[in-house]
Amino acid sequence: MSEGVVTETGVRARTRRAILDAAIETLTKQPSATLADIAAAANVGRTTVHRYFPERSDLIDAVSFDALDKISQGTKRARLDEGSAPAALARLCQEYFEFGDIFQLLFTMPDLVTRPEWQEENEDDRALLGVVERGQREGTIDPAMPKEWLLQLLWSLLYTAWEMAREKKTPKHEALGLCLRSLEKVLAVG
């Protein structure tokens, strides 16, 4: 009997994931998309979407928390406390590059990042600032560059790489390579 529960839970989890992924993709292209639009993109019925997310705001909440969770997982995988600070930031860019759809959605729907969960500094924010500060202390990141400036440049480089891959059809590996090369030059001391 417990196998049936596990299977149902697995099916529910996959369906929920399909809806969230479809929401991210659909809302990035059309921020005013309806639940019916998202259901069609997820290849499920509108009633299925309503079963998981009764209101559009419930789906937006789930997308927001899912994005934060993915960012947190990517930050952990980047191992920011290992190696030089520039190498750690390069690993972080590689991780975050894979979440281009999520970040594109955040840029497309700026009201998402004004939500309370995005306004509070979290562990990932502190880790990112910490690696920049560590690099400046160690002399591997230019201390004349304010850390807030460097973080904005990092986000700008990632955004440019995502746009090049998405809009200009630049191969992903090439866009990421240009991003990493530019980051290396931005962080360089001297």
Rank of each mutant, 00 (worst) to 15 (best):
T75G: 01
T140Y: 02
I60N: 05
P171C: 01
S2Q: 11
A127N: 04
F53G: 01
A78F: 02
A127S: 10
I71G: 07
V132Q: 12
I19G: 02
G45W: 00
C179D: 07
D37H: 06
E184C: 05
E55F: 08
H50W: 09
L154Q: 12
C179N: 09
Y96L: 15
A13I: 10
I71V: 14
V131H: 00
M164A: 12
Y159D: 15
Q73C: 08
H173N: 11
L157N: 10
D61S: 10
R137Q: 11
W118P: 10
K172F: 02
Y96V: 04
P116C: 04
Y52V: 04
R115D: 07
S182L: 11
L183I: 01
P86R: 00
L112D: 07
T7V: 15
E98S: 13
D61H: 12
I24K: 09
D125E: 14
Y159T: 15
D124C: 13
A188Q: 15
R17P: 00
L154S: 04
L158E: 06
A40S: 11
G83Q: 03
S2K: 11
A13F: 08
P171R: 02
A62G: 06
R181S: 14
A23Q: 09
E148F: 04
L35P: 07
D37V: 00
F103K: 11
D124H: 10
Q94I: 03
E25A: 15
V44A: 02
